[in-house]
Amino acid sequence: MEYFLQQLINGVTLGSIYGLIAIGYTMVFGIIGMVNFAHGDVFMLSTFIALIFLLALTQVLGFASLALALIIVLVLGMLLTSLWAWAIERLAYRPLRGSFRLAPLISAIGMSIFLSNLVQVTQGPRNKPVPSFLTTVLTLREGETYTVTLSYKQILIVAVTALLLVAFWYLVQWTSLGRAQRACEQDRRMAALLGIDVDRTISLTFVMGAALAAVAGLLFMIYYGVVSFADGFVPGVKAFTAAVLGGIGSLPGAVLGGLLIGLIETLWSAYFSIDYKDVATFSILAITLVFLPSGLLGKPEVEKV
């Protein structure tokens, strides 16, 4: 029982990180109907940015207060990751926005390859261990064979995710930017004719997705303690699975999907086989797409004949 509780805690934590990344996928797909293949690698990039800035602040500049350093790293990370996402959209996607749908997809794949290899070349191919900190662990429950623990890191991750979800939900539902986004989702040409700056709205969508990925990157770096240039592909696909499972285009769906994927992955590793855990995730992706393409919270698409 205790073991199960622990897996639940771990699963929710992992799922929160997936959820944050998934929001980026779902927002971009919602507004321009494109799967941003490079998003996972933008996330990976943000883990490195977070690590480098943390090292810079603590080692080089000798910051004493860890909390302050983390906040600065967070802000800088969000800014720079957003800059990357903005640049990628501007250079690789915007020129291809038109009726040919494969071109942006290939461009995105190319960008993904470019990013992961850029990091590999500039930072070296080895995994980078993160200096350990924030190691406090709370004991929740002591069982006979197993003790359930909850670490500060886990609390941080779940709390930050919940906060950001509320903030973005507010942003999308109640602000003019959110309205502009929803208008562009429905009918881009009409939105443009009504005076909405479609290019800017789309750019902002990419930026927002990247900012959230940057938060996820920082949390990932803190939680897992190691970053690698290869961390873009698999977490990216899992986050995309989460977005699809939750219903692509739906913000709460992305987080819900993320939590589900995180739980499934953790429980599967714990109770069945850790080797095949990724197979479980990919299979869920396939099954969802085949049987429930609109996901749990999404709207079904009907093609007009």
Partner: peptide, 16 residues
């Protein structure tokens, strides 16, 4: 090392 880097870049550039 730069093989795949250039490959990815080339993909983007040719598409554009």
């Amino acid at each position: 090392q730069y093989r795949m880097l250039l490959f990815g870049l080339a993909m983007v550039l040719v598409m554009i």
